[in-house]
Measured scan of single mutants.
Amino acid sequence: TSIVNVSSSLNVRSSASTSSKVIGSLSGNTKVTIVGEEGAFYKIEYKGSHGYVAKEYI
């Protein structure tokens, strides 16, 4: 489990790309479970499925 480190919110994306669809967002200090990594993104558990967040904010 890791913590989201942002002051406002962090986009959760459908794939490991800044141009991919935003499927949701997480607020600062939210706990997330990392299940993998791809480039500059972590794959996380998100709403019963998976999403991707930028590593620099975790």
Score class of each variant (00 low, 15 high):
58 I>K: 04
53 V>L: 05
1 T>P: 11
52 Y>I: 00
15 S>H: 14
45 E>Q: 09
14 S>Q: 14
19 S>D: 14
40 A>H: 09
54 A>H: 08
51 G>W: 03
29 N>D: 09
33 T>P: 03
34 I>H: 00
58 I>D: 03
36 G>T: 03
58 I>R: 03
11 N>T: 14
10 L>P: 07
16 A>P: 14
57 Y>T: 07
19 S>Q: 11
1 T>R: 11
18 T>H: 15
26 L>N: 00
45 E>K: 10
45 E>I: 14
22 V>Y: 06
20 S>R: 02
38 E>I: 08
25 S>V: 15
14 S>T: 07
50 H>E: 06
34 I>L: 04
40 A>I: 09
50 H>N: 05
9 S>I: 13
55 K>Q: 05
22 V>T: 06
31 K>R: 13
31 K>S: 11
15 S>E: 14
28 G>R: 14
18 T>P: 14
35 V>H: 03
10 L>K: 04
20 S>K: 02
48 G>P: 02
40 A>V: 08
43 K>F: 05
42 Y>M: 04
56 E>H: 10
47 K>R: 10
7 S>Y: 06
3 I>L: 10
40 A>Y: 07
31 K>N: 09
34 I>C: 04
43 K>Q: 07
15 S>D: 09
26 L>H: 02
44 I>T: 00
9 S>C: 15
34 I>T: 02
6 V>Y: 05
41 F>R: 00
52 Y>P: 00
19 S>F: 09
16 A>W: 04
46 Y>H: 03
23 I>M: 07
19 S>E: 12
45 E>H: 07
8 S>G: 15
33 T>Q: 08
44 I>H: 00
27 S>F: 10
43 K>L: 09
27 S>I: 11
7 S>A: 12
21 K>L: 11
40 A>N: 12
18 T>D: 12
9 S>D: 09
26 L>K: 01
48 G>Q: 06
36 G>A: 08
29 N>R: 09
23 I>H: 02
35 V>I: 14
42 Y>K: 01
37 E>W: 08
21 K>F: 09
14 S>E: 15
2 S>A: 15
7 S>R: 11
24 G>P: 01
25 S>E: 10
25 S>Q: 15
44 I>N: 00
4 V>R: 07
24 G>F: 10
57 Y>D: 15
37 E>S: 08
33 T>F: 10
1 T>C: 15
35 V>N: 02
12 V>H: 01
50 H>I: 14
25 S>Y: 14
57 Y>S: 12
58 I>P: 03
30 T>G: 06
39 G>P: 02
17 S>W: 04
32 V>I: 11
2 S>G: 15
29 N>H: 11
13 R>I: 05
28 G>P: 15
37 E>G: 04
43 K>C: 08
36 G>P: 00
30 T>I: 09
4 V>L: 09
38 E>H: 07
2 S>F: 13
13 R>V: 08
28 G>V: 14
49 S>F: 09
51 G>C: 04
37 E>D: 06
37 E>M: 09
31 K>A: 11
22 V>G: 02
41 F>E: 01
43 K>I: 14
52 Y>M: 00
17 S>K: 07
33 T>M: 10
14 S>R: 10
12 V>A: 01
21 K>D: 11
20 S>V: 03
41 F>T: 01
36 G>M: 04
31 K>P: 12
11 N>W: 14
30 T>N: 06
33 T>E: 07
11 N>F: 12
26 L>E: 01
15 S>P: 01
4 V>D: 06
30 T>P: 04
8 S>F: 13
41 F>C: 03
48 G>C: 07
40 A>W: 06
12 V>R: 01
25 S>F: 15
40 A>D: 14
16 A>I: 04
38 E>Q: 08
19 S>H: 12
24 G>T: 03
51 G>P: 00
8 S>H: 15
26 L>T: 03
23 I>W: 02
37 E>K: 05
17 S>M: 07
47 K>V: 05
52 Y>N: 01
56 E>V: 12
55 K>G: 01
25 S>K: 14
6 V>P: 09
26 L>V: 08
17 S>L: 06
43 K>R: 10
47 K>T: 04
43 K>S: 03
49 S>Y: 08
54 A>V: 08
8 S>C: 15
34 I>N: 00
45 E>D: 07
15 S>F: 08
3 I>N: 07
27 S>A: 14
54 A>S: 09
31 K>H: 11
20 S>L: 03
50 H>K: 04
27 S>C: 14
10 L>C: 15
27 S>K: 14
55 K>S: 04
42 Y>W: 11
34 I>S: 01
31 K>C: 14
15 S>V: 05
7 S>P: 11
23 I>P: 01
12 V>W: 02
32 V>N: 01
13 R>D: 00
25 S>T: 15
36 G>L: 04
38 E>F: 07
2 S>L: 14
50 H>C: 09
48 G>S: 07
55 K>L: 03
13 R>C: 07
11 N>A: 15
8 S>D: 10
13 R>P: 01
43 K>A: 05
55 K>T: 03
42 Y>F: 09
16 A>C: 05
41 F>Q: 01
24 G>S: 02
46 Y>C: 04
52 Y>E: 00
39 G>R: 04
16 A>V: 04
49 S>V: 10
3 I>H: 10
14 S>K: 13
21 K>E: 12
19 S>P: 05
29 N>P: 09
5 N>G: 09
4 V>C: 14
29 N>C: 15
30 T>S: 11
2 S>P: 09
42 Y>Q: 01
50 H>T: 10
33 T>C: 12
5 N>R: 11
55 K>C: 03
10 L>H: 05
26 L>Y: 03
20 S>E: 02
26 L>A: 02
1 T>E: 11
42 Y>L: 05
35 V>G: 01
4 V>G: 14
15 S>G: 12
58 I>A: 04
4 V>I: 11
42 Y>H: 02
22 V>A: 05
39 G>A: 05
30 T>M: 11
50 H>Q: 06
6 V>L: 11
56 E>M: 12
50 H>L: 09
28 G>I: 14
33 T>L: 10
17 S>F: 05
10 L>D: 03
54 A>T: 06
54 A>Y: 11
29 N>V: 08
17 S>I: 06
23 I>K: 03
34 I>W: 04
25 S>G: 06
